[in-house]
Amino acid sequence: MGDSLLAITVIWGFIFIYAVMGTMDFGAGFWSMVYINRTKTNATDVANRYLSPTWEVTNVFIVAIVVALFSFFPRATFTLGTVLLIPGSIILLLLSIRSGFLVFSHYASSFKYRRALVYISGISGVLIPAFLIAVLPVSQGGFIDIIDGTQQLNLAKVFSSPHVYSFIGFAISSSLFLSSLLLADYSKSSDEMEAYAVYRRDALITGPLSLLMAIFIMITMQSEASWLYDKMMQFKPLLYGSVGLFVVAGIALLLPSQKGKGMPRLAVVSIILQYFLASYVYGRSHLPYVVYPNVTIENGFTHPDAFHSLFIVYIVGFAILFPGFFYFWRLFMKDNKEYSKKKPY
């Protein structure tokens, strides 16, 4: 593997992790808003219990993506940074509002406007994925104009493109789908059967919706980014495999099991594999372009010497961090009801 391919793989990995963790996190904020009045089912409670310890770690990944991008592909950052100033700023604003509110709505339990906070964090949690994903169609080309020798994003064109909207629809439905699925699993493993029933139903509704949106994307891509569409079609077997995994997840949710209907753990695993396959195909077909057609992984690449020291740092860093992640996961992902019912300090 060439250096630049290695570098883009690392970035792709971060983006994938953030996409999964982030959508779950944003979606969980949304659900905790939707079920705020259902005190009996504990659905909001479950969502919050998942959300509290994880959002901070999730947030580090977005920083990791930005850092990896500008250190591996400085030229690409130049283009992306210049072009994405305004959408990027909107995302930042939403992110900061959301995380600010989230923290306060958790800590300041006596806070008068607690409900309003939950609403704001819930709504911005849906808007953020919508804006974030708009980076993808933009990087597929066609939205950047060169005016007076500088690159400019044509916002009017972005917001009138059906392709962009199908991505946005996909982002929202996926984040609701992934989070409800995860929360279903989470509530089942902590014996919150009412909450489980609620989230299982939500997953069954939002799942097919996400698939539909994915199909929309392929349809609009055909006309708006045909270069990418053609390349993706070369990976048809993988795409079918991905749909197959989706079906497996559906079946897993419907199958009977000893307690309650469905096997959410199996569904979660196969859905994550499904997204993995689909985004592999997407990313692979996108190469060698970072931003089509100006920036490729070759011409945007950093200095090779710089890359080598960075890469060593990556490997050492993750080797050191891995036990930390593992410990974290053991503590929080296996929810332990008696413990987490207690308030933190």
Partner: peptide
């Protein structure tokens, strides 16, 4: 950031 990306990315990374 282009210069930082090429020369001074290590601290950000770490």
């Amino acid at each position: 950031m282009e210069i930082v990306g090429k020369v001074m990315a290590l601290p950000f990374q770490i």
